[in-house]
Each structure stands twice: as C-alpha cells, then as structure tokens.
C-alpha cells in the first residue's frame, strides 16, 4: 500500500514537473521585426477578409468597432473575442510590432502564453510582414475603447492555458499556401483566401474532441459548430451536386442567395454580410474558382522531386485529398 502511495506521489510529482516545464516552454519564435510602413486601406481590407472586424465587433448588441465581439459558445466553454482597439490597457495598443505579429501568425500572447484556437491564427500564419503592418495601421484608425471585453468562461481542464502548448504541438497546422503551376491568377488568389485569411475550414472542416481540425475531412463540412450549427461540405463534388457554379457561388458570397433560391441563414449569412460582401468582385470570384476546381484537373506533372515544394505543387491543387493545413 505504501508503495502504491509512493508511486502515486512520484507520478504526481513528475506530472507537476512536466506541467512546469510545459508552462515554461517558449513557443514564440523570437524575431527582431522592424515595422514596415502600413497601408491602412490594405489593412482594413484584410481585416474584413480575415473576419477580424466581424468577430471582434458585437454588431448585434450595437458594440463599438473592434471593442470585443459576441461570445462563441463551444463544448469547451464560452470564448469572448477581446477588445483589439489600440487602447493600451484594455485593447492591444501596448503590443510591440513583433508581439502583434507573433499573436497573429503564431497565436502567442505577449506574455508567451498561447491563445485559444477560437482565434483562428493558424490561418494567418502566411501573412507577410507587410500584411501585419497594414493591419496595425488599420487598427489605429479605429477609435480606442477603454473598456475590456468580458473574460472567457472556459471549463476545466481547458482553462489551463499551458495545455494549449500541447494542443499546438499536436494540432496546429499553419496555413501553407504554395504556388501551383498552371493555375490561373484567380485560382491562386482563391487558394490564398480560402486557406488563409477567409479561413473557410474553421467552420467547414470537422474537428476532433480536442478541437483540432481533422485532416481527412478538409472542407467536408462540420456538424459541431458553436450554437449547434452545422456547415455543409464545400468540396467541389458536393458543391456541384448542389448546383453551385463559379458564377452563382460568386453571387452568393455577395448576396447570400443560393442556386436553389434559398437564402443563407445562421453564421454563413453573417459571413457574407460582415465579410465577403465587402470583398472586391474579383476576390469573391477567386474564392469560387478555387473551391470549384475539381481535384483531378488540378494535378500538375511535377516530376519526382523529393523537395517539400514539389510535393506541395503536386498536391496543393487538391483541396480534398490534401491534408488540411488550414
């Protein structure tokens, strides 16, 4: 019996040590980032495309722009998108440029801890330094709000932030947006939006019990969204079966009107009204072009090169078979 207790204590001790080690595990790449000059218009356009404005503004409750959004209710608890105005205390005004970049691209807070993946930073991993500077400039055009958004209400054990480092190690797949030979500019732009900023997979790809995106179900739909919502498959074959074409999908991303005459509701209606309706027509068409491009037509002869890039070229045109980096 005493041996058993000793073993239990020893493993508890080991567990504590492990937690202490994980808690100190540095996850942000330290980067000495010079801040490029930002273009507020480009940044504002990106903030719209990436859902920053939609998520961090509680429009329904008449909240101020970027001052904190409507809570997302998930099986892990309730996440409140924080105030990201330039207020130095309650917003993000005291972040350095490098900290802002680490937050967006790596999901790491200025204190070195990880953000919850309710903040879809995985999709922003490919943002350039210029993109980040543009966003920074755009955020500074918005009036600062000196009020904090309410705190998250996350249940045990998910309220232990150190656990997020394990989550990152297991599930984080930074958006990989590789150029693909023989593709139109629209398709390439579509890939950038779908797999990056517009983060379609955040809702249209199923998640495992830890909230990690399931590689094998990329864009195949999800039935476990916040508030009991579901998202349909947006793989090319599913879209085509349901009557979608590049023209009517481009149109739906502006108007919410579907080919069968029904009109989006739920969070897709919000995505359109607070997101894709603001995009240039060319960008909506790019998203539709990428989503509808059938996998077999997108394979390019890339030779037997073993480099990561040639593998990416071979697979990147295939949003279905490819593991989902989004």
């Amino acid at each position: 019996m005493r041996g058993l207790i000793r073993a239990a204590l020893a493993s508890a001790g080991l567990g504590m040590v492990a937690i202490a080690v994980i808690a100190r595990w540095p996850i942000a790449e330290s980067r000495d980032l010079p801040a490029p000059d930002g273009d507020a218009y480009r940044g504002a356009y990106l903030a719209r495309s990436a859902g920053c404005v939609a998520c961090h503004t509680n429009t329904a409750a008449g909240g101020a722009a970027l001052a904190g959004g409507k809570a997302l209710t998930t099986p892990f608890g309730s996440f409140v998108p924080p105030n990201i105005t330039a207020d130095p205390v309650h917003g993000i005004g005291d972040m350095t440029f490098a900290e802002f970049a680490a937050a967006l691209r790596q999901g790491v807070r200025p204190d070195g801890k990880a953000y919850y993946p309710a903040f879809p930073y995985e999709f922003y991993a490919d943002f350039s330094d210029q993109d980040i500077a543009d966003l920074w400039a755009a955020i500074r055009t918005v009036p600062s709000i000196a009020e904090p958004a309410p705190a998250h209400d996350v249940r045990f054990p998910f309220n232990m932030r150190w656990g997020l480092k394990l989550w990152r190690a297991a599930y984080m797949k930074p958006a990989d947006i590789s150029p693909v030979l023989g593709k139109s500019d629209a398709w390439i732009r579509g890939q950038e939006l779908v797999r990056g900023a517009a983060h379609c997979a955040a809702c249209h790809t199923g998640r495992n019990i830890f909230g990690g995106l399931k590689d094998s179900e990329a864009l195949a739909g999800s039935d476990s969204l916040p508030e009991g919502e579901t998202a349909p498959s947006i793989r090319p074959e599913a879209l085509k079966t349901n009557g979608w074409t590049v023209a009517n999908l481009t149109y739906a991303l502006k108007t919410s009107v579907m080919p069968n005459g029904d009109v989006f509701g739920g969070s897709m209606a919000e995505v359109v009204q607070t997101g894709t309706a603001f995009l240039d027509e060319g960008d909506r068409e790019a998203i539709a072009t990428y989503l509808l491009d059938p996998p077999e037509a997108t394979r390019t002869a890339s030779g037997a090169g073993a480099s990561k890039n040639s593998a990416a070229v071979e697979l990147a045109g295939d949003p279905v078979a490819e593991t989902n980096e989004n």
């Binding site: 579901t230 108007t255 009107v257």
Partner: peptide
C-alpha cells in the same frame, strides 16, 4: 433591388431560422 430582397431574407434567416 433583388440583392436587397436577398439581404432581407438573410438578415431574417440568420436571426430567426434554426440550423442553417
């Protein structure tokens, strides 16, 4: 005008329709 019709439907669906 047709777009306005669609926007009205979408506003109503997102607030008052279950599921989709």
């Amino acid at each position: 005008v047709f777009e306005k019709v669609g926007q009205t439907c979408a506003s109503c669906h997102s607030a008052f329709r279950k599921g989709k």
